[in-house]
């Protein structure tokens, strides 16, 4: 079984976000970017499945600007086997909406035929929490969101999900899409030798047009503002 892991390049979670004074968005020039923390957990889970003999190949995919190459190299250094970069924007301030991301991922999946997709439950920049569910709808596959435990048993998977009231366990038919929550595992750090090795692993570069997907946004950003400040003390 192949496992596909979509990874997103986002502002590092330690960086204090600065909203641009003209309301046009958040300043992303010259700030530290990293792999979305949830996606690190997804990559880790995929590698563990491979180490346990339940997966043969782990493919990381990122959609966005050319710089997302770095994010894919991180996934390769952690242990993914190969990577696919789908360039869909030139400006680092352009973000691709979950619906378009899901359409591109569907096209990649039609070619690669993975048995499992492991994605993050939300990207910490836009907090949309949507891509996995949308992809699952487009494929007509089962979905298991907010996973804190995953067991694959033949043609189905048992997934424990973090829900409002506590935990829910469901059984989903394979192939499936699992979106991962923070407590699924503790992602590893890439070692220096693995970082070196990752430079030689295959990284294919494609464009959104190669897959015939229109990435024109459906949501126009009217403005982006600072939230009302909260004054401490009474």
């Amino acid at each position: 079984m192949k496992v596909l892991v979509p990874v997103k390049r986002v502002i590092d979670y330690n960086v204090k976000v600065r909203v641009k004074a003209d309301g046009s968005g958040v300043d992303l020039a010259n700030v530290k970017m990293s792999m979305n923390p949830f996606d690190e957990i997804a990559v880790e889970e995929a590698i563990r499945l491979k180490e346990a003999g339940k997966a043969e190949e782990v493919i990381a995919v990122s959609i966005g600007v050319k710089q997302a190459q770095e994010t894919l190299r991180t996934a390769l250094a952690m242990g993914a086997d190969r990577a696919i970069l789908v360039v869909a924007a030139d400006d680092v301030h352009t973000d691709i909406e979950p619906l378009a991301v899901a359409k591109i991922l569907k096209a990649v999946i039609d070619e690669e035929q993975p048995g499992l997709v492991l994605c993050g439950k939300q990207a910490i920049d836009n907090d949309m929490n949507a891509t996995g569910q949308m992809l699952s709808a487009l494929l007509g596959w089962s979905q298991a969101t907010f996973a804190s435990k995953l067991d694959i048993e033949g043609d189905h998977a048992l997934v424990t999900r973090e829900v409002d009231g506590g935990l829910q366990t469901i059984k989903v038919k394979m192939p499936t899409i699992v979106s991962v929550d923070l407590r699924l595992n503790e992602p590893r750090y890439a070692s220096l030798p693995n970082i070196m090795k990752a430079k030689k692993k295959p990284l294919d570069e494609k464009t959104a047009a190669d897959y015939g997907v229109d990435v024109t946004p459906r949501l126009e950003i009217v403005k982006t503002e600072e939230p009302p400040a909260r004054a401490a003390g009474i």
């Binding site: 976000v17 126009e220 009217v222």
Partner: peptide, 15 residues
């Protein structure tokens, strides 16, 4: 809200 509530975005849908 986006970025953990550090910014508030106004979006207009064309759908």
């Amino acid at each position: 809200p986006i970025y953990a509530g550090n910014a508030v975005q106004t979006v207009k849908s064309s759908d």
